[in-house]
Amino acid sequence: MSIEQFIDNEVKSNDVVLFMKGTPQFPQCGFSGQVVQILDHIGVGYKGLNVLESAELRNGIKVYSNWPTIPQLYVKGEFVGGCDIIREMFQAGELQQLFADKGIPVDVAA
């Protein structure tokens, strides 16, 4: 399987995927860590993929998304944005709305 096929499969078979540096439990970059905090705060389930474990994945996701930086958030196979965009959307309530519109369950108690 090529890296493009791997990424394509990941973003299409998981509702929410975060390409990040480090893991959700132990982010290794402040920008990735900010997105982890936002997703955890909203209480949405997601799959974290650590690009530091694979140079092929790290380069592959940049090409796949045509986006030069990490982190990158995908929802239902669609690229939503990087750290700045995710934070702006969260602050405006748009990220929560996106999950609602896509029918992705969140922990409302969070």
Partner: peptide, 26 residues
């Protein structure tokens, strides 16, 4: 938002491929 970031990223592609490690955009 994505279009705006893509416009800037394309303009600064050389910098992003080179020494610039992180670029926060507003």
């Amino acid at each position: 938002r994505i279009e705006r970031h893509r416009m800037i990223n394309a303009t600064l592609a050389a910098e992003l491929a080179g020494s610039v490690h992180a670029l926060a955009l507003h």
